[in-house]
Amino acid sequence: MDWTVIARSLPQFTAGFWLTLKLSAIGILGSLIVGALVSLAQYFKLPGLRQLATVYIEISRNTPLLVQLFFIYYGLPGLGVKLSATVSGVFGLMFLGGSYMAEAFTSGYNAISKGQLESGRALGLTNVQLARYVVVPQGLAASVPALAANVIFLIKETSIFTVIAIPELTNTALDLIGLYYRSNEYLFVLVVAYAIILIPLSVGLTWLERRVRYGTFGN
């Protein structure tokens, strides 16, 4: 292991690090929005939208991100839709993440006991009121562990962006290896970089899960 090689590569890795974080953040935020809308369409059985949501989840969950990215980046131009690599990457991550987030929300809503819904109805709450005061607050709390797992999963998936040459962390490392043949050094930095992002995040999310669980359900 040659530390000067590592030191000299740090500017490139720092840039890749921030790009990974930035694209992850945008993609995850988008996934959460898509997931929330899709799960509500399913929960309230909105006609038409609900079937659309089911088809979307089916496709998104049963195909790899790599193929989704290729389809968006190389396939869609055949239909006249040309997107930059970065935009394709973010859209791909949202397409994948949206279904994972939707399923996390749905499992949270389904975890609410029948009794909670009935006592809400017995008090005269409308469906919208029931959603706002009972289903959403409790369902969100119950879905936090699954949402947290998805956040970690999606950050790791950004490593696949390298196939469409987005200069994020993995792409930076593979490029440097291609140029200078120092695989040990660059892979070491790469693993450390992911650890710097994911270890504190995973500890933080576990803490959050506990807080939310206790705050809402008391156990």
């Binding site: 006991s113 009794g115 909670q116 009935e118 006592s119 809400g120 109805r121 017995a122 008090l123 005269g124 409308t126 005061y133 009972v134 607050p137 409790q138 709390a141 809402t216 359900f217 008391g218």
Partner: peptide, 22 residues
């Protein structure tokens, strides 16, 4: 109709079902 009537007919269940988030 039920939405209207439930304001006039109160109901309490075996499992209490207080809302834990409130």
């Amino acid at each position: 109709t039920w939405l209207q009537l439930r304001q006039k007919i109160g109901m309490v269940f075996q499992s209490y079902d207080l809302f834990p988030n409130l």
